[in-house]
Design a protein around this nucleic acid. Structure first.
Lengths: 180, 180
DNA sequence: TCCACGTTATGACGTCTGTCATACTATGAC
DNA sequence: GTCATAGTATGACAGACGTCATAACGTGGA
């Protein structure tokens, strides 16, 4: 159910995603929603965002298993690759849940902002840890992780708007040399 | 009125922004909305996005007047500076309208997607032109513009989530050396 | 004065939202 | 059997949404 919520939020945004849509998408009984989510919609999308943050962090953590010589550039390419695959196989319908949450509620004072922040922090931490494993000093790893995530998110946005994966390949090609 | 729409979309997203809110924010009579915007909400947010794209393009075009020796890195810093000022003086309430439009409707088939695409294209074109003026070949200028805009957008998102301008200063510091 | 037209005012429509209240069914303990 | 409890099923609520229909208003020309 939180998975369904995440998918719908990714494609339509937070505000446009109704709880009725989520329960229908999850083939769940409508009465179960209020039983498992007494916190209402806020709790639902909050858990969806946390789940997404964990997923992104897990994906970053899998990078060492995909190569024999890990590099920052390779890590960035690994992060981008997931989105290129997503777009090529499933189309441009779904974007990043963190961006969706940010765009819809980062301006206000919704309690879900805590979960948006937590999801991004978890993801950022995972990327940083990978860079630290490559013997980068932690403070520099943090800055590089910020750069990577920012560029990736922006490229995701651009790619979805143009409905083309070119921005993804462009940023990985242009940013790679700097990252080493 | 399209200006009010842009501001509200920037802070709350497209779906969460009601036409009633817009006319109230613009101190405009409610009956005027349907007179000037017979196309309804789609037309309103569409024009708001076009307006935003023009504004961003204009900002990019102003760069040469701010320096004696234009460089790609200086241009990027110029683009980022606007957002650092926005966040420091007006807080993190308002984000980028293009991102808001992308997050809320890029997944579906809303007719407003054309305007989102147009706004991004106009902005991208303006940045590209600036790079071409620095004697970069057009095809390379296009790629660098994609990188700049993507990184900037992602940094805006990150900054708003963390409610800190640090991501902005980080990306300009890390990306600068590569851009030259 | 009269009409026409651009603009504003207001009320209502149907639909959707999130949430709540209530009743039902199952399962398991004793 | 009896009872409690977890889970499910509906229906209704008040409010907001986008849109439409209609009427009133102001101003300029004939």
């Amino acid at each position: 159910m939180v998975y369904s919520a995440a998918q719908l939020v990714r494609s339509r945004g937070v505000a446009a995603t109704g709880v009725r849509d989520v329960v229908a998408h999850a083939n769940a009984p409508r009465g179960s929603f209020q039983h498992y989510f007494p916190g209402g919609k806020d709790q639902l999308v909050g858990e969806a965002l946390i789940w997404s943050g964990d997923f992104a962090a897990g994906w970053a953590a899998e990078y060492p298993a995909t190569t024999r010589r890990p590099t920052p550039a390779g890590l960035f390419a690994h992060l981008v690759r997931q989105w290129r695959d997503e777009f090529t196989t499933r189309g441009f319908e779904r974007g990043c849940p963190v961006m969706a949450g940010s765009a819809d509620l980062a301006g206000g004072d919704s309690p879900v902002n805590d979960q948006v922040r937590a999801a991004l922090a978890r993801w950022h931490r995972a990327v940083t840890d990978q860079l630290v494993r490559m013997d980068l000093p932690r403070h520099r790893a943090r800055r590089l992780a910020t750069l990577m995530i920012s560029t990736l998110e922006g490229a995701i946005m651009t790619a979805r708007i143009q409905r083309s994966v070119t921005p993804l390949t462009t940023v990985v090609r242009e940013l790679g040399p700097l990252l080493g």
